[in-house]
Write a protein that binds this DNA or RNA. Structure first.
Lengths: 241, 241
DNA sequence: CGTTCTTTTGACTTCAATCAATGAGAGTGG
DNA sequence: CCACTCTCATTGATTGAAGTCAAAAGAACG
């Protein structure tokens, strides 16, 4: 049972110092398991929630719909993430959280989370830091959405996912699974699905990336990074000092 | 001397419950005052910092420059804000913080902030919540940058600023000071300065807003809100439940 | 296997960027 | 007090990136 939280433990170690006390407190948080089908929402914009969602297996994403129906995907998430940790202090959702692919999640009741933080106060700093890294990614995405063209946006998404997936061991060489449609990429990048298709062809033609059947392959990391204007500072990973 | 933190106290009350203990702890944080000229950076991208900046008087903004020189303004800030509070846990800046106009700030050493949080632990939740609301604004801006055209972006910025400034008493009827150039608006909205000028003319022609000499006037709130697709949920203000 | 979802293609349109120049104010110094 | 300079705002002409619309081809799936 306890191995369900391994991904979270590993992530917390990555974010900062995780002592014995803190680790025990995390492991003792009661988990309420659930299986999600592709497209299921675990929390919807406007809703008041009393639990957060730990992703055990699969992919999730957060998104916001505008009144006119346009959708923006805010972020993608992988095992070990608690995508809606912010709801611990912002009870009313300002966006939605959905399963990108069939996924396994564990719901963490806010009362249980709060109890864990009381038991091991230093966990608070770790969780806070996690939400701050989240915010740092938003800043980066705002910058890319505001200042970069479609090809750079696409390249940046691939760089971002590759680096984050590599840290959790979900890459194979320079490739990784990305179970999303071109339409979902369009939602994430602020361009139309038709344009996504054309940009992917262009990047393929330039031998930067391939993307087919939910599998992404990076063909030339250096040129991809350049196209994306990628600078991993915003990820606040410990190693690249 | 103590009245310098009034704006911060008011803001914290707005964010959540501020007890006597917590208020006293905030008031006792040592302040290191400084005057900033327009354009001065208090923290720069990549820098490792050991203090945060409380804005006492004036306007500040955070921004990120891409390798190609393009700039995105992430957010504007007003008195009472601690724009780089996140540096308490993310020591390395992933963006820059600058004075938009001549401003008065107080630097808060991280050691002093940490001491205040230890003295009044419930302050941690308030400060954490503040950074989460920040992140919520980013999500909204990502959505607007990704999904809305230039006129809507402009309208949204005016809605956002109006609501935030109103809560701190910095509005006069439907107008407020906004000491920025059209070029800075362009940086914030992800469009060119020339296009900012044209959009402002268009919005003026439609009697939605005026913007001249650093003063913004909202001419028709309802239609502006509609143009902006504005929904203040993301501000997580206490009243609109 | 047929139905549905996803990807791909082509023709055309539109929004915003670019380039280049002019105007308008604010402050400076002779 | 009036050139002079700077910055900021404005305008026009043109280009370019991405959106739109519509249809066909290819995968996926019950």
């Amino acid at each position: 049972m306890s191995e369900l939280v391994e991904a979270l433990i590993r992530k917390l170690r990555f974010i900062g110092e995780l002592g014995r006390e803190e680790e025990a407190a995390v492991r003792d948080i009661p988990l309420h398991l659930a299986q999600l089908a592709k497209g299921d929402d675990t929390a919807s914009d406007g809703e008041v929630v009393d639990q957060s969602c730990l992703l055990i297996e699969g992919y999730m994403h957060r998104y916001k719909d505008l009144p006119n129906g346009n959708r923006q995907i805010i972020s993608f998430h992988v095992a070990g993430d608690i995508p809606d940790l912010q709801s611990l202090h912002l009870k009313r959702m300002d966006h939605s959280l959905a399963a990108t692919s069939a996924s396994t999640v564990a719901f963490l009741k806010h009362t249980d989370l709060t109890a864990a933080l009381r038991r091991a106060p230093r966990l608070t700093d770790l969780f806070w830091r996690d939400t701050l890294i989240d915010a740092a990614s938003y800043r980066q995405m705002m910058t890319i959405l505001g200042q970069a063209g479609a090809a750079s946006r696409m390249a940046h998404l691939f760089c971002d996912l590759y680096v984050r997936l590599k840290t959790v061991g979900k890459t194979v060489d320079l490739s990784f699974m990305l179970p999303v449609t071109q339409t979902e990429l369009a939602y994430a990048l602020g361009i139309t699905p038709v344009h996504v298709n054309r940009i992917l062809q262009e990047l393929r033609r330039q031998s930067l990336i391939e993307f087919e059947h939910g599998r992404a392959v990076i063909l030339d990391w250096n040129r991809l990074e350049e196209q994306a204007q990628f600078d991993p500072t915003y990820l606040h990973h410990p190693y690249p000092e």
